[in-house]
Amino acid sequence: MSGAPVELDDVDDAVRVRMVVNGRKVACDVAPRDTLVDVLRGPLELTGTHAGCEMGACGACLVQLDGCAVHACLMFAVQADGARIDTIEGLSASGVIADLQAEFHRRNALQCGFCTPGMLMTAHELLSQVARPGREAIRDALSGNFCRCTGYEAIVDSIAAVAEARAAKAAEGSSR
């Protein structure tokens, strides 16, 4: 056992957290009990990430933590100190999901829009792992994303269409 003294923070005292959010370094003071979703939505004003159930059951709060989709309601902001966080605002600005957004728009794969950022996070991760997922695989990937409005079909259609388009583009690129 190491005998080094352990420094413990006082309860609810603010802790300075530094993260790279959407490609920019940010620092903010949070209470240890503040969840990542509350800090993103509050002090960082990134309200595109939504809180739907605060227990990891709805997928509205998905963000990327060091490149992986996670529930921002299921971790505390202090835990993200030193991490890279990408939210819908960042993915949107960078253009990496522009084709998904355009296809969702064209097929109206959203109504109220509250689930949409989470849906896009899941879709983005799925398509980065599987080039041409079938409808069943798409539905499986979406199994933790609740949408009360659409009935899911247009979302599945949009993701499938983007997968096809990306595969076709890749094939075109490799044939040149």
Binding site: S2, A4, L8, D9, D10, D12, P32
Partner: peptide
């Protein structure tokens, strides 16, 4: 649905984690 206040310690080693726990009971 907000947690009660707590303090936070990030352990880097198993020993650090165990010591932190032993210190807090």
């Amino acid at each position: 649905m907000k947690a009660r206040a707590f303090s936070y310690f990030r352990a880097r080693t198993i020993d650090e984690a165990l010591a932190a726990h032993a210190g807090a009971g």
